[in-house]
C-alpha cells in the first residue's frame, strides 16, 4: 500500500481536520455507493478508506509516523457495498421507481419495457418461514405425525421420517409465506429438535441403554424385559454376565439410509440388593471370592 499521506494528498504535518476534509472530498468522489457505475472507483476507495482509518486514529498515526507500523494491513476488510444488492435483479424494499414514473405512464414500447421489469418484481416468490419443532427421542427413531401450531394460530401437519437426527431441517414445499402476484408461496423450513431421553442414547444408527440386573440374574442368567423404541421385548441374560456386558438387539436401532436398521445395545449393570445378612454371611465364608482380584492386571 502506498504512503497514506500520499493517498489522501495531505502533508505529513496535516491536522486531524485537514485529514478528515481530504478524506471526505475523495470519498464522495470514489465511494462505490455514490458511484454505482464506476468499477474502478472501488479499488481506489478502499485505498483511501484504509489510509483514513490509519491516519484518523491518533494512536495508529503516531505509531506509523515513528515507523513502528507500516501501511500494510490498513485496508478495510472485504465487504459488499449497498450497490451490489440494490442494483441486482431481485426485488427489495428500497426499490424506488419514482425516478421514471413519468416514462411508464406513456403508451409506447419503452414504457412497456419498464413496466415488464416491475411486473417481474411484483410476482415475487413468498418468503421461506423458519420453525422449530421439539420431538421425543422415540419419535425420532420410529417416525411420527406431528402438528405444529403457528404464531398466527393456524396449524401445519409435519410428518417426521423415521431415524431423523437432532437439528435436521424438514422442508415443506409451498407452506411458507404466500407470494406476490403469480409468484408461488415460499417453503416452511422446520428444524427438528430431538429431546434427550432418560433411557436411550444414540450413536449413529445404533441406540444404547443401560439395564440394571440382579446378582442372581448375573450369576445364573435369566430372562428380563428390556425397553426398545417399538415396545418392550424379552431378552435372555446369559449365565455369568457382568457389569458392562453388552447385548446386541439386532434391528432395534434407527433405520439406515439405504435400508435396514441399526441395533440396540443393552449394557448390563449388576446391582447388589440392600445390605442383607444372609449375603454377608455367604460372602464371608466364600473363600474363592476372596482370592479373586479384578485389579490383578492393573498393578
Amino acid at each position: 500500500m502506498r504512503n497514506p499521506y500520499e493517498v489522501l494528498g495531505v502533508a505529513a504535518t496535516a491536522s486531524a481536520a485537514e485529514i478528515q476534509s481530504a478524506y471526505r472530498k475523495l470519498a464522495k468522489k470514489l465511494h462505490p455507493d455514490l458511484n454505482p457505475g464506476d468499477k474502478t472507483a472501488e479499488e481506489k476507495f478502499k485505498e483511501v478508506a484504509g489510509a483514513y482509518d490509519l491516519l484518523s486514529d491518533a494512536e495508529k498515526r503516531k505509531r506509523f509516523d515513528s515507523g513502528e507500523i507500516d501501511a500494510s494491513g490498513a485496508e478495510r476488510p472485504q465487504h459488499n457495498f449497498y450497490r451490489d444488492y440494490a442494483s441486482s435483479d431481485q426485488g427489495h424494499p428500497y426499490a424506488d421507481t419514482s425516478g421514471f414514473a413519468d416514462f411508464m405512464d406513456t403508451d409506447d414500447a419503452f414504457a412497456e419495457l419498464l413496466r415488464r421489469g416491475q411486473r417481474a418484481r411484483a410476482n415475487r416468490r413468498g418468503q421461506d418461514m423458519h420453525y422449530r419443532l421439539p420431538i421425543d427421542f422415540v419419535e425420532s427413531i420410529t417416525g411420527a405425525n406431528k402438528r405444529l401450531t403457528l404464531p398466527d394460530g393456524s396449524t401445519l401437519d409435519v410428518k417426521i421420517p423415521p431415524g431423523l437426527v437432532d437439528g435436521q431441517t424438514l422442508r415443506l414445499k409451498g407452506k411458507g409465506a404466500p407470494g406476490a402476484g403469480k409468484g408461488g408461496a415460499g417453503d416452511a423450513l422446520i428444524e427438528v429438535e430431538v429431546l434427550p431421553d432418560r433411557r436411550f442414547t444414540r450413536d449413529g444408527d445404533d441406540i444404547s441403554l443401560e439395564v440394571p440386573i440382579s446378582v442372581t440374574e448375573a450369576v445364573l442368567g435369566g430372562r428380563i424385559r428390556v425397553a426398545t423404541p417399538t415396545g418392550d421385548v424379552t431378552v435372555t441374560v446369559p449365565k455369568g454376565s457382568n457389569t458392562g456386558t453388552t447385548l446386541r438387539l439386532k434391528g432395534k436401532g434407527a433405520p439406515h439410509r439405504g435400508g435396514g436398521h441399526g441395533d440396540e445395545l443393552v449394557k448390563l449393570k449388576v446391582m447388589l440388593p440392600k445390605s442383607d445378612p444372609e449375603l454377608e454371611a455367604f460372602v464371608t465364608n466364600w473363600s474363592k471370592g476372596k482370592e479373586f482380584n479384578p485389579r490383578e492386571d492393573r498393578i
Binding site: P36, Y94, D96, T97, F100, L114
Partner: peptide, 18 residues
Amino acid sequence: ILHLMDQLHELRRALAQL
C-alpha cells in the same frame, strides 16, 4: 441521499433490463 440513490439504482436496473 438515500432517496436519490434508490432512484438511481432503480434507473440503472431499468436500463440494464432495457
